[in-house]
Simulated assay, not measured.
Amino acid sequence: MQVDEISRAETFDATTAHAVDLPRILTGTAYVTDGDTIRIQNTQVRLFGIDAPELHHPYGKKAKWAMVRLCKGHCIRAEITDEDEHGRTVAKCFLPDGRDLSEELVKQGLAIDWPRYSGGKYKHLEVAGRRKKLWLADARQKGRLHVWEKFDARRKDEHDK
């Protein structure tokens, strides 16, 4: 595991002579947290542009294990694009053969495009009817967090019985 030569450092754009912040690249083994979050070199990385179910939501464990199967035994390349509102590193993550992890999970029907962040990059790959199955992720994207709260409360009530 190493950080590529390109690190988050200031350099100058030759045409404009303005400082440019180069992207940071992480490479290494990925520890999978859930369907859209991995850890590389002790850095928690949120996959760019998609939303996968939380572990305790329907299809959450399937999404995590699909990501484990994709990453297992591979050196993952994470091209850091941003930091989200929760302070997590956001990155476009790739397998050694160049496949985009976000794209692969959407194609498997275990994540949906998050247009607010992706610009719709993965929308065309969504499996038909998947937003209905991943309704909690869809509700989050639409700002309907009361749906999550209701689901979590019902689940807690069932667990307490």
Rank of each mutant, 00 (worst) to 15 (best):
A137M: 08
R88L: 10
L55T: 06
K61Q: 15
A63M: 02
E10N: 07
K142V: 00
E104W: 01
V90T: 04
E54N: 15
G35C: 06
E79R: 13
V68C: 07
E83Q: 13
P96W: 02
M1T: 02
K150R: 09
D34T: 06
A19I: 05
D21S: 09
A91I: 02
Q44L: 13
D36Q: 01
G73M: 08
L101R: 03
H57I: 03
L134Y: 11
D152N: 07
I112T: 09
A66I: 14
E149I: 13
Q41F: 03
K123I: 11
V68S: 07
V106I: 04
Q41C: 04
G119D: 10
C93E: 00
K150Y: 04
L95G: 09
K123E: 12
K62V: 09
H56A: 10
I38V: 09
K123P: 00
L136R: 08
E54I: 14
E79T: 09
K62L: 13
A14F: 11
G109R: 09
K121I: 04
A111E: 00
T43P: 00
V147G: 00
Q44R: 12
L70C: 11
E126L: 08
K64C: 06
E5A: 15
H56L: 06
C71T: 12
K61N: 13
R69G: 14
K123R: 14
G35N: 12
D160E: 14
W114P: 00
S118Q: 04
A137I: 01
C75D: 08
A128N: 06
I80M: 14
G98W: 14
R77I: 06
T16H: 13
G73Q: 10
K132L: 11
K133P: 00
R99S: 12
R39H: 05
G120Q: 08
Q2G: 11
K123H: 08
T29Q: 11
T37K: 07
L136T: 10
P53Q: 09
T27N: 06
E5Y: 07
T15S: 15
N42K: 15
L95S: 04
F12V: 06
G120S: 04
H74I: 04
D4R: 05
T33P: 00
G98L: 08
A30E: 02
L22K: 12
S7H: 07
H159M: 13
R131T: 04
H57P: 00
R39A: 09
